Amino acid sequence: TGIVNVSSSLNVRSSASTSSKVIGSLSGNTKVTIVGEEGAFYKIEYKGSHGYVAKEYI
């Protein structure tokens, strides 16, 4: 489990790349469930599926 550490919002992406499609966003202080790691990204549970967020903001 981690907490989103941004002042505005954090993009949730379809894969572990900054060039991948943005599938949603999370507000600061949102609790997320981390299910894996891939490079500079965490794989998280997101809306019944999975998404990826940059580690530096969790």
Results as ranks from 00 to 15, higher is better:
residue 1 T to E: 13
residue 1 T to Q: 12
residue 1 T to W: 12
residue 2 G to I: 08
residue 2 G to L: 07
residue 2 G to Q: 06
residue 2 G to A: 08
residue 2 G to D: 04
residue 2 G to T: 06
residue 2 G to R: 06
residue 3 I to G: 04
residue 3 I to A: 05
residue 3 I to C: 10
residue 3 I to L: 09
residue 3 I to K: 08
residue 3 I to D: 04
residue 3 I to W: 13
residue 3 I to Y: 14
residue 3 I to R: 11
residue 3 I to H: 09
residue 3 I to E: 06
residue 3 I to Q: 07
residue 4 V to Q: 04
residue 4 V to L: 06
residue 4 V to A: 05
residue 4 V to T: 07
residue 4 V to K: 04
residue 4 V to Y: 03
residue 5 N to I: 13
residue 5 N to E: 07
residue 5 N to P: 05
residue 5 N to T: 11
residue 5 N to K: 11
residue 5 N to C: 13
residue 5 N to D: 06
residue 5 N to F: 06
residue 6 V to K: 13
residue 6 V to D: 06
residue 6 V to H: 12
residue 7 S to A: 13
residue 7 S to C: 14
residue 7 S to Y: 07
residue 7 S to F: 07
residue 7 S to H: 13
residue 7 S to K: 13
residue 7 S to L: 10
residue 8 S to H: 15
residue 8 S to Q: 12
residue 8 S to I: 11
residue 8 S to K: 13
residue 8 S to F: 13
residue 8 S to R: 12
residue 8 S to A: 11
residue 8 S to G: 15
residue 9 S to L: 11
residue 9 S to I: 11
residue 9 S to H: 14
residue 10 L to T: 11
residue 10 L to Y: 04
residue 10 L to E: 03
residue 10 L to R: 04
residue 10 L to K: 03
residue 11 N to H: 15
residue 11 N to V: 15
residue 11 N to P: 15
residue 12 V to K: 00
residue 12 V to W: 02
residue 12 V to N: 00
residue 12 V to D: 01
residue 12 V to R: 01
residue 12 V to Q: 00
residue 12 V to Y: 01
residue 12 V to A: 01
residue 13 R to C: 08
residue 13 R to E: 02
residue 13 R to F: 15
residue 13 R to L: 15
residue 13 R to I: 06
residue 13 R to V: 09
residue 13 R to K: 07
residue 13 R to T: 10
residue 14 S to E: 15
residue 14 S to D: 13
residue 14 S to I: 14
residue 14 S to F: 12
residue 14 S to Y: 12
residue 14 S to R: 13
residue 14 S to K: 13
residue 14 S to G: 08
residue 14 S to T: 08
residue 14 S to P: 03
residue 15 S to D: 10
residue 15 S to W: 08
residue 15 S to T: 11
residue 15 S to L: 09
residue 15 S to N: 09
residue 16 A to R: 03
residue 16 A to V: 06
residue 16 A to L: 04
residue 16 A to I: 05
residue 16 A to K: 03
residue 17 S to C: 08
residue 17 S to Y: 07
residue 17 S to I: 06
residue 18 T to M: 15
residue 18 T to V: 13
residue 18 T to A: 14
residue 18 T to L: 15
residue 18 T to S: 13
residue 18 T to W: 14
residue 18 T to E: 14
residue 18 T to K: 12
residue 19 S to V: 10
residue 19 S to L: 12
residue 19 S to I: 10
residue 19 S to K: 13
residue 19 S to N: 14
residue 20 S to D: 04
residue 20 S to P: 02
residue 20 S to T: 04
residue 20 S to K: 02
residue 20 S to H: 05
residue 21 K to P: 15
residue 22 V to Y: 06
residue 22 V to R: 05
residue 22 V to T: 07
residue 22 V to Q: 05
residue 22 V to N: 05
residue 23 I to F: 03
residue 23 I to S: 02
residue 23 I to N: 01
residue 23 I to D: 01
residue 23 I to L: 10
residue 23 I to A: 02
residue 23 I to W: 03
residue 24 G to D: 03
residue 24 G to K: 02
residue 24 G to F: 08
residue 24 G to E: 02
residue 25 S to A: 12
residue 25 S to C: 12
residue 25 S to M: 15
residue 25 S to G: 06
residue 25 S to Y: 15
residue 26 L to K: 01
residue 26 L to T: 02
residue 26 L to R: 01
residue 26 L to S: 01
residue 26 L to Y: 02
residue 26 L to G: 00
residue 27 S to D: 12
residue 27 S to T: 12
residue 27 S to P: 15
residue 27 S to K: 15
residue 27 S to F: 12
residue 28 G to E: 09
residue 28 G to D: 08
residue 28 G to S: 14
residue 28 G to H: 14
residue 28 G to M: 13
residue 29 N to C: 13
residue 29 N to K: 10
residue 29 N to V: 06
residue 29 N to T: 08
residue 29 N to I: 06
residue 29 N to W: 15
residue 29 N to G: 15
residue 29 N to H: 13
residue 30 T to G: 06
residue 30 T to Y: 07
residue 30 T to D: 11
residue 30 T to S: 12
residue 30 T to N: 06
residue 30 T to Q: 12
residue 30 T to W: 07
residue 30 T to C: 09
residue 31 K to C: 11
residue 31 K to M: 14
residue 31 K to V: 15
residue 31 K to L: 14
residue 31 K to W: 15
residue 31 K to I: 15
residue 31 K to A: 10
residue 31 K to F: 13
residue 31 K to D: 05
residue 32 V to G: 00
residue 32 V to N: 01
residue 32 V to E: 00
residue 32 V to W: 03
residue 32 V to K: 00
residue 32 V to L: 05
residue 33 T to L: 09
residue 33 T to V: 14
residue 33 T to R: 11
residue 33 T to P: 03
residue 33 T to I: 15
residue 33 T to Y: 11
residue 33 T to S: 08
residue 34 I to R: 01
residue 34 I to Y: 02
residue 34 I to W: 05
residue 34 I to A: 01
residue 34 I to V: 06
residue 34 I to S: 01
residue 34 I to T: 02
residue 35 V to S: 04
residue 35 V to F: 07
residue 35 V to E: 04
residue 35 V to P: 00
residue 36 G to T: 05
residue 36 G to C: 07
residue 36 G to L: 05
residue 36 G to N: 06
residue 37 E to N: 06
residue 37 E to D: 08
residue 37 E to G: 05
residue 37 E to P: 03
residue 37 E to L: 07
residue 37 E to W: 07
residue 37 E to S: 09
residue 38 E to G: 03
residue 38 E to V: 10
residue 38 E to C: 10
residue 38 E to N: 07
residue 38 E to I: 09
residue 38 E to L: 07
residue 39 G to H: 06
residue 39 G to W: 04
residue 39 G to A: 07
residue 39 G to V: 03
residue 39 G to R: 05
residue 39 G to Q: 05
residue 39 G to M: 05
residue 39 G to T: 03
residue 39 G to K: 06
residue 40 A to S: 11
residue 40 A to D: 15
residue 40 A to M: 12
residue 40 A to F: 09
residue 40 A to G: 11
residue 40 A to T: 09
residue 41 F to S: 03
residue 41 F to H: 04
residue 41 F to D: 03
residue 41 F to Q: 02
residue 41 F to L: 02
residue 41 F to N: 02
residue 41 F to T: 02
residue 41 F to I: 01
residue 42 Y to S: 01
residue 42 Y to E: 00
residue 42 Y to W: 10
residue 42 Y to P: 00
residue 42 Y to A: 02
residue 43 K to S: 03
residue 43 K to L: 10
residue 43 K to E: 06
residue 43 K to P: 00
residue 43 K to H: 05
residue 44 I to A: 00
residue 44 I to T: 01
residue 44 I to L: 03
residue 44 I to M: 01
residue 44 I to R: 00
residue 44 I to V: 06
residue 44 I to N: 00
residue 44 I to E: 00
residue 44 I to W: 01
residue 45 E to H: 08
residue 45 E to F: 09
residue 45 E to K: 10
residue 45 E to Y: 10
residue 45 E to I: 14
residue 45 E to C: 12
residue 45 E to M: 12
residue 45 E to T: 09
residue 45 E to D: 07
residue 46 Y to L: 03
residue 46 Y to A: 01
residue 46 Y to E: 01
residue 46 Y to G: 00
residue 46 Y to S: 01
residue 46 Y to C: 04
residue 46 Y to D: 01
residue 46 Y to N: 01
residue 46 Y to I: 04
residue 46 Y to K: 00
residue 47 K to V: 06
residue 47 K to D: 10
residue 47 K to A: 11
residue 47 K to F: 11
residue 47 K to G: 11
residue 47 K to P: 02
residue 48 G to W: 06
residue 48 G to M: 07
residue 48 G to D: 09
residue 48 G to V: 04
residue 48 G to K: 07
residue 48 G to L: 06
residue 49 S to H: 10
residue 49 S to F: 10
residue 49 S to E: 10
residue 49 S to D: 08
residue 49 S to Q: 14
residue 49 S to C: 08
residue 49 S to V: 13
residue 49 S to T: 11
residue 49 S to G: 15
residue 49 S to K: 12
residue 50 H to K: 05
residue 50 H to S: 07
residue 50 H to R: 05
residue 50 H to E: 07
residue 50 H to N: 07
residue 50 H to W: 15
residue 50 H to C: 08
residue 51 G to W: 03
residue 51 G to S: 02
residue 51 G to Q: 02
residue 51 G to L: 01
residue 51 G to P: 00
residue 51 G to E: 01
residue 51 G to M: 02
residue 52 Y to E: 00
residue 52 Y to H: 01
residue 52 Y to V: 01
residue 52 Y to C: 02
residue 52 Y to G: 00
residue 52 Y to D: 00
residue 52 Y to F: 11
residue 52 Y to K: 00
residue 53 V to F: 01
residue 53 V to T: 02
residue 53 V to C: 04
residue 53 V to P: 00
residue 53 V to R: 00
residue 53 V to G: 01
residue 53 V to D: 00
residue 54 A to I: 12
residue 54 A to G: 09
residue 54 A to L: 15
residue 54 A to Y: 13
residue 54 A to D: 09
residue 55 K to I: 06
residue 55 K to M: 07
residue 56 E to T: 09
residue 56 E to C: 12
residue 56 E to I: 14
residue 56 E to R: 13
residue 56 E to Q: 13
residue 56 E to P: 06
residue 56 E to N: 08
residue 56 E to V: 10
residue 57 Y to R: 06
residue 57 Y to N: 08
residue 57 Y to F: 14
residue 57 Y to V: 05
residue 57 Y to W: 10
residue 57 Y to Q: 08
residue 58 I to P: 01
residue 58 I to A: 02
residue 58 I to Y: 03
residue 58 I to T: 03
residue 58 I to K: 02
residue 58 I to Q: 02
